[in-house]
Amino acid sequence: MPITTEVTLADLTRMLRESAGEEEGVDLDGDVIDTPFIDLGYDSLALLQVIGQIQREYGLVIPDDAVVDAETPRALLALINTAS
């Protein structure tokens, strides 16, 4: 299914909250686009969970390596928005 609307940072942070919760002391509404996931309190399980949610909500196929390769929200969004 081709993607019609881009996934935005706001979409991603919403899904992160739903899939993995929010680390105490982290403001996901702040300037987090280049903050490594690890510093946002998200481990690989959290990323797998949110990537699963993105795939289901947007009908995308995101490659396995995304969880390793995408270290920041910006990198993950780039992967998502070029996925098919």
């Binding site: 399980l45 797998l48 969970q49 699963g52 396995d64 969880v67």
Partner: peptide, 8 residues
């Protein structure tokens, strides 16, 4: 599968 623990 969901955590990529098993081999593909």
């Amino acid at each position: 599968d969901a955590i990529h623990a098993t081999t593909p």
